[in-house]
């Protein structure tokens, strides 16, 4: 009798960070990134307002240069990661980029759903909760692959 093997989504190997994602997870990441890119084009939408919210509380409005830099920075983050979706081996920098993008897509999805409080978060329907759990699982796997399990950090 064989014990069922549990595959981790990401692990460190000599060659880099190895991903073992089911196809549907890869597609979920890809479609989330596409969605985020579309949403960021609309700075007045819920995602734009959340991710490009005013930084300087002291100023009457943000410096437009800062806003442009932020948009550029987010675009760069997405551009860097897009070609790596579907690959099974990442460098550490690419895996870090995945963590950035997963944080962004999570924030964007919650902004779309109007989640601002813990009450909102715990009222998510099963489908949105499942999405959240998939992103969490991937984040945790990548953190462990990059840094080692919590006990070894």
């Amino acid at each position: 009798m064989r014990r069922r093997s549990r595959r981790t989504l990401a692990r460190r190997t000599a060659a880099g960070i190895e991903l073992a994602l089911p196809d549907w997870v890869t597609e979920l990441v890809r479609s989330s990134l596409d969605e985020l890119r579309r949403d960021l084009v609309l700075p007045g939408g819920p995602v734009g307002r959340r991710l490009l919210a005013q930084l300087d509380e002291s100023a009457p409005s943000d410096d437009p240069v800062v806003t442009l830099m932020r948009q550029h920075t987010l675009d760069e983050t997405l551009d860097a990661i897009e070609p790596t979706i579907g690959r099974q081996l990442l460098t550490d920098d690419e895996a870090e980029g995945w963590l950035e993008v997963l944080g962004l897509v999570l924030t964007a999805r919650m902004a779309q759903l109007g989640v601002r409080t813990e009450v909102d978060r715990w009222a998510l329907n099963r489908s949105d909760e499942a999405y959240l759990q998939v992103v969490y699982a991937l984040q945790v796997a990548l953190m462990h692959a990059l840094d080692g399990p919590p006990a070894s950090r």
Binding site: L51, A53, E57, S58, T73, L99, G103, L104, L106, T107
Partner: peptide, 10 residues
């Protein structure tokens, strides 16, 4: 913000 965290300066 690159990780989706909300922060401001003041």
């Amino acid at each position: 913000g690159r990780y989706g965290l909300q922060s401001t300066v003041a």
